[in-house]
Design a protein around this nucleic acid. Structure first.
Lengths: 226, 226
DNA sequence: CACGCGCCGTCAAGATGATGACAATTCTCC
DNA sequence: GGAGAATTGTCATCATCTTGACGGCGCGTG
């Protein structure tokens, strides 16, 4: 879930934002001054900050600098002032976007989506490694390792493995496998599955004739068990 | 130097932007319709795109989608229309920012700086020297050293090496390599890859016919192993 | 309990497609 | 104009994919 930090000293603005954001399944924290904004940001690590520049305790630009000292979280500035120099100052201090009040909620939400989308891939470099007792699958690097050595998989083998691993523990029907790996025209070619499952087992299972991870569910499909 | 692509069908706007940008040491390309915009973007790989939505030949949102199909270059949309739904549509299609005409040049420039600043670090992550047993690659200095001597690489060779090294250990698909180095129009020209991989291997591998660092993953792509 | 049927795993061989080396041509920048 | 670089085309080789045939196993049925 996306976490938002809303910083504004006007309670009605905060309320409107919180209601709208929560309705759209954002997780929302709010602060009404710069000090608690910085504190909350550090404690909660939001995915995006919506920041009003007119705060009671400190200059909004200082808040931006305070955040930028340690995080690259997207910052969207709200401000009642249309003056160009203030926009320039905020943006150059490290803000990602600048929206003038009064603003349309749709627009603000769209700008938030844009900011979060941009930040995603940098933040979401999450390891996508699935491990079993005998081998590991690295989905991002497209690598399979067994006993410390990389296993060579053909493109089709890899694709099949990928679909099974992404549905770890779940049963995947034959039709679905065929459709995803070979395309919709091959939905009936169950031979392929038999051949390629056998190859995967030969390359990855300790005892290919007694598979522990690539399980056949007769009449239904196959299941990957980590 | 930062490269900008300006897309607008009004000559006076283009002229104003080009003059301002060049004065600030940007390298500027300009296009007056969507088709040539996409073409130029592919050919020149700008660091930021300034895009007017009202183009004669195609919908601006289509241009955004066309770009987003293969690149994450920041896109700043210009538009005369203040309508909220148009902003939302553009932003959700993948635009980074939306500025309504008439706009202040200072503000646009600040938004460009913000967009470029955000995009930068994704490319330049931390240490920029990658070493192998037989050679080292310095991404920042654009230098390759082997046995104490610098190796001369052609621009294309370097670009290819750079993409592979930035994805160290990960598999990079042929399409992705072709797209990043030669542009989206070359997605099918796998010859190029074969030729240039061979050249890189000849220059960098101890035994070019048995590569240890530039690994072919048949049917899938190539991988750089440090 | 024996039988037939459907489903699955195995195997081998031909068709297909990808790869890397080489050669020739065009392009680009001094 | 010339050298180096980039592009394009071709070809032999090899891995992969596809296909069909075969045998075993489990299950339901008579």
């Amino acid at each position: 879930m996306t976490r938002v930090l809303v910083v504004d000293d006007e309670p009605q603005i905060v309320r409107a934002l919180v209601i709208n954001l929560k309705a759209r399944k954002y997780e929302v924290d709010s602060a009404h001054d710069g000090a608690s904004a910085l504190e909350l940001a550090a404690a909660r690590h939001p995915d995006v900050v919506v920041l009003d520049l007119g705060l009671p305790d400190m200059d909004g630009v200082e808040v931006i600098r305070g955040l930028r000292g340690w995080t690259r979280v997207p910052i969207i500035v709200l401000s009642a002032r249309h003056a160009s120099d203030e926009k320039v100052e905020a943006l150059d201090a490290g803000a990602d976007d600048y929206v003038t009040k009064p603003f349309g909620m749709d627009e603000l939400l769209a700008r938030m989506r844009a900011a979060v989308r941009r930040a995603e891939p940098v933040a979401a470099e999450g390891e996508s490694v699935i491990a079993t007792e005998s081998f590991t699958v690295d989905l991002a690097a497209k690598k399979v390792n067994r006993d410390g050595a990389d296993v060579r998989l053909t493109p089709t083998e890899w694709h099949l493995l990928e679909v099974l691993v992404r549905n770890s523990g779940r049963l995947v029907s034959q039709t679905q496998l065929l459709q995803e790996v070979w395309g919709p025209a091959y939905r009936k070619e169950t031979n392929y599955l038999r051949v390629y499952l056998a190859q995967l087992r030969r390359k990855l299972e300790a005892d290919p004739s007694h598979p522990r991870h690539f399980i056949t569910e007769p009449g239904m499909g196959y299941r990957f068990e980590p």
